[in-house]
Computed example of a mutant assay.
Amino acid sequence: MIKISIVSYSNTIPFLYGLNKWHFNNEINISLDDPSTCAKKLISNKVDIGLIPVVSIKMIKDPKIISNYCIGADGSVDTVCIYSDIPINEVKNIFIDSDSETSVKLLMILLKEYWKVQPNLIRIKIKNEVLLQKKSTALVIGDKTFSLKNKYKYVYDLSSIWKKLTGLPFVFALWVTNKNFDNKFLSQFNLALSFGVKNIQEAISFFDYKFNYKANLEEYLNNRISYDLDVDKKKSLTYFLEKLRVNGF
């Protein structure tokens, strides 16, 4: 049995649909986890494949990227944002959602190179809905952002800011393993992911009972999330990881 850890956000609905509908003959077992747990499970060999935050790759022994699909965005993503009632240049403290280290590292780069400010970063575990005190600021990621729409005066989309800074899309998570799989399985795995990405409306309908959010998922999955790990995303990934190295983040 091949154990797979997938991020439990709605942006993975196409992947889940493809893996559920493809003919794996009970070869796979899927667990839904937050991004940091996906990485921890792969690092500790509790799973064989993980959809993990890109900054976690360096923590894995002999990592292999096994798919041409990812969780990415080319411009605004809507679900990795800073929410605040004051402008970013006046912010003293930012509460940061610890679910994904990639988003935190991206924020650190943008604070230094785009906004050129140095607020304190305070790690917290943000629940399904975060209620911020007046003049407080938070980085919130994933489906938790759906309930925050139109509630704050300032919303800074980190993927959009990265695009302004670099001219490139951004990659949040990749399909990674530290095991060796035969080409037949890897081919079927990628065909399953492709099937899901090409049938987003059917995927949304299939999981409607599970992802019951007041959000336009069809718009979000088709026009905000970008699933192909193309040349520009690979270039962006290399550039992002180099930025982390140079800055010591």
Rank of each mutant, 00 (worst) to 15 (best):
I225D: 03
F207C: 07
K210I: 14
I200A: 06
K214D: 14
Y209E: 10
L217C: 09
N223G: 05
Y227V: 01
V231R: 10
Y209W: 11
L217V: 02
F206Q: 01
L221E: 04
D232H: 10
I225P: 09
K214I: 13
K210R: 11
K210N: 11
E218I: 11
F206N: 06
F206R: 00
K210P: 03
A203G: 02
F211Y: 14
F207L: 09
L221I: 05
D232L: 10
R224G: 07
A215V: 15
Y220L: 05
K233T: 06
Y213R: 09
N222M: 03
N199S: 04
S205M: 12
D208W: 07
R224V: 13
N223V: 09
N216A: 09
R224I: 11
Q201G: 09
K214H: 12
Y220V: 06
E219D: 14
A215I: 15
Y227A: 02
I225Y: 03
I204A: 00
K214Y: 13
E219W: 12
I225S: 04
F207R: 04
L217A: 02
A215N: 15
Y220C: 03
N222C: 06
A203T: 04
E202F: 09
D208G: 07
K233L: 02
Y227R: 00
Y213P: 10
F207V: 08
K234L: 09
D232K: 13
L229R: 02
V231F: 12
N212Y: 14
V231H: 14
D228V: 08
Y220R: 05
V231A: 08
A215L: 14
Y220K: 06
Y213S: 05
Y213E: 12
F207G: 09
S205Q: 14
K233N: 03
E202Q: 15
K210D: 07
K234W: 03
F206P: 03
D208M: 12
V231G: 02
Y209P: 00
D208P: 01
F211E: 01
I204L: 04
E218H: 10
E219Y: 12
D232N: 11
R224S: 13
E219R: 15
A203N: 00
E218W: 11
N222D: 06
Y209T: 08
F207D: 08
S226Q: 13
N216H: 05
L229E: 02
I204V: 06
F206D: 05
F207T: 05
L229T: 02
L221M: 00
D232T: 08
I200D: 01
E218S: 13
S226F: 13
S226K: 11
R224N: 12
D208H: 13
E202M: 13
L229M: 03
S226M: 10
L229N: 03
A203Q: 01
L217P: 00
N222F: 10
D228R: 07
S205E: 15
I204Y: 07
D208R: 15
K210H: 11
Y220A: 08
S226H: 12
